[in-house]
Design a binder for these strands. Structure first.
Length: 597
RNA sequence: GGUCCGGUAGCUCAGUUGGAUAGAGCAAUAGCCUUCUAAGCUAUCUGUCUUGGGUUCGAAUCCCAACCGGAUCACCA
């Protein structure tokens, strides 16, 4: 039982005894004492005044007296206005540190075969262009969330739905046929996804020119769009693809494979992975079948032009198209099919979609549609909706060339990490492959942390010109502290300074150390909250607080030079426990920590 | 126009199951490397928490209204 819980119970019995009123423990809220006051935990007594019918000060004193006499973990107390500040005894903190020190996987709940299964969909790229900054936020959030859910005792399946079919990929294919001269990733040395992206842009360029020419001949915009031969060819190609035309399908496979090998490289660099990948080309027909089943069962209806619709006006939404008049599927049809396949494949208890907040409406609709089709999971699906990544001058626009490419950005981060490391002379004594590894860990970690420390729901601003800081609330600051702790532990070992993993509770302990242990003790609750709130940011900001506190401690206290063996042991045990929590917490963000840097 | 989300220091962000004098980092200024890694530490400076009401012992936090910004309301994905 946690100290907090113990004291809460003692307060409940105290109030019962003093004022004869039964108070459920949930109503008693202990909070962390503010830094400027003495004590560890604070009880705000205002809510109990109507029971005690006495002044705040007097009430606080009475409860405080009761605790000191009856609850051994409370050493002393002080009262300021209506605030009862409790000081927990040193021996409790030492006992707590002992416990944390020998708890394996501290902070995480074990996963068993009976654990509920959560499937997390993230990434979901289109195969016509490379990944950009927005995808980075998506991938980092999705991967981190998977780790957090696992730490909270869920079985987790990470999944990805690849948008591999549709008019967009036909545009790239067409441009490549027309102007590509058989260029391949091998022949040009370009990454497959970047190569395809270039042809997508090239199509758009020629298409725009064609429109301009047509408009110059006196056509309106709409007429020009209808008359465009390029667009006509692209649509024609999509039709050939859907009817299984062999040359088109072969080309499609070839070009998509170029993209996949490019994506795989990027995913590897990002440090994310998937347990199961679905492809839209394999799910859209299933979606169509499901929609037709819905028509048969009366959930949806057909209009005169043969298009299929869902009437959601009873759910305070509008009518929604599900199949076009020509029978082809739309975006949401595919999500219905994917959902069905997934639930056929796995016994999913909870489905989480990591998708940007511009699709809030889409998922609201999807939830209702799945429910109408009789899928039990429809109502409970979670849309983990995150904000846009904006540049200082506003949204990223591919047409204006302001898109920040994921590969480029990651490379730049590593390059910057390398330059700073060299300037500081950090890497002088290390082997080249070690240098590469540290540069990767620091550069990439800083990027991930920079993105994940922000509340996922909020839009965030990213300034590519001001490179990401390596000071302050950053991954490198945390990584540096971790490396330094390891250095101390390494040196302790070299000097033969082993320390027991269990300290006598009689050891005297400073206020700073008590505060650090109190912070450490909060970790499991933070992991739980992060899981409930879907917020890796909670963990990031917690780790930062812990590290900041430890750094001050590190500068104020000697560890290896401390001559009192009990104190030295305490500090070594504290340091190694903190290192363990840093590693665990950063691991939940998908950020590695190096043992030296 | 309807719906949803946001507005906290010059900048980037914490802080919201209502609690004490609203916090960090960056930027600025001044110190600290014969001592466990200076990617660090210390000190100073920085605020109409968008505005106006309400709820109460107490509001950045909850409610109402207004203003500003964003998203969405596609036979695009």
């Amino acid at each position: 039982m946690s100290i907090e819980r113990q004291i809460t119970d003692a307060i409940a019995t105290g109030i019962q005894k003093l004022y004869g009123v039964e108070t459920p423990a949930e109503q008693i809220q202990l909070q962390k004492t503010k830094r400027e006051f003495k004590g560890h935990l604070t009880l705000v007594v205002f809510p109990f005044l109507r029971m005690s019918k006495k002044s705040p000060e007097q009430t606080a004193h009475e409860i405080g007296e009761h605790l000191v006499v009856n609850e051994p973990s409370v050493a002393c107390f002080n009262v300021i206005k209506g605030f009862l500040n409790l000081t927990v005894s040193s021996s409790c903190w030492v006992a707590l540190l002992n416990e944390i020190g020998r708890t394996e996987n501290y902070g995480s709940t074990p996963v068993t075969e009976q654990s509920p299964l959560v499937m997390i969909e993230y990434s979901s790229p289109n195969t016509n262009k490379p990944l950009h900054l927005g995808h980075l936020r998506n991938n980092f959030l999705g991967f981190s969330l998977a780790g957090i859910m696992k730490a909270n005792g869920y079985r987790v399946v990470k999944t990805n739905i690849v948008n591999d079919r549709g008019i967009h990929i036909c545009k790239s294919m067409l441009a490549w046929l027309k102007w590509g001269n058989g260029e391949t990733p091998q022949s040009s040395g370009k990454k497959g996804d970047h190569l395809i992206g270039e042809y997508y842009v090239l199509f758009d360029k020629h298409y725009k020119q064609e429109l301009k020419d047509l408009e110059a001949r006196g056509l309106t915009r709409e007429q020009a769009e209808a008359r465009s031969s390029y667009m006509h060819e692209a649509r024609e190609m999509l039709r050939s693809w859907e009817s299984g035309d062999e040359t088109v399908v072969t080309l499609w496979k070839t070009m998509n494979n170029w993209v996949y090998s490019g994506f795989n490289e990027t995913y590897k660099k990002m440090g994310v992975d998937f347990d199961k990948i679905y492809y839209e080309s394999e799910t859209y027909l299933v979606g169509k079948e499901e929609v037709l089943r819905g028509v048969k069962e009366g959930a949806f209806y057909r209009r005169d032009d043969e298009s299929v619709w869902a009437d959601l006006r009873k759910d305070e939404l509008d009518e929604k198209l599900l199949l076009r008049a020509d029978g082809t599927s739309v975006y949401i049809t595919q999500d219905i099919g994917t959902a069905k396949l997934r639930f056929d494949d796995y016994p999913i208890d909870k489905m989480v979609y990591v998708v940007g907040n511009e699709q809030n409406y889409h998922f609201q609709v999807l939830s209702i549609l799945l429910d109408k089709l009789g899928f039990a999971f429809g109502k409970g699906l979670v849309h983990f909706s995150y904000g846009m990544v904006e540049l200082p001058e506003g949204k990223m626009k591919s047409r204006e060339g302001t898109v920040v490419d994921a590969d480029d950005l990651m490379d730049e981060m590593m390059q910057t990490a390398r330059e700073i490391s060299q300037e500081l002379g950090k890497l002088d004594e290390l082997a080249p492959d070690e240098v590469e590894n540290i540069v990767r860990i620091v550069g990439l970690g800083s990027l991930k942390y920079f993105i994940l420390k922000v509340d996922p729901r909020k839009n965030m601003t990213f300034n590519p010109r001001e490179s990401i800081d390596f000071n302050g609330n950053t991954a490198s600051f945390i990584q540096y502290t971790y490396a330094r702790i390891h250095s101390v532990l390494r040196k302790a070992k070299e000097q033969g300074l082993s320390f027991p993993d269990k300290l006598p509770t009689s050891v005297s302990i400073s206020e700073k150390e008590e505060n650090l242990i109190q912070l450490l003790a909060a970790y499991p609750a933070i992991v739980r909250e992060a899981g409930e709130a879907y917020s890796p940011a909670l963990i990031a900001n917690y780790i930062y607080d812990l590290v900041k506190e430890y750094n001050q401690f590190y500068h104020d206290f000697s560890i290896l030079r401390e001559e009192n063996p009990e104190w030295r042991h305490l500090r070594l045990l504290l340091s190694s426990s903190i290192a363990a929590v840093i590693k665990s917490g950063m691991g939940l963000l998908g950020v590695e920590v190096p043992e030296r840097m």
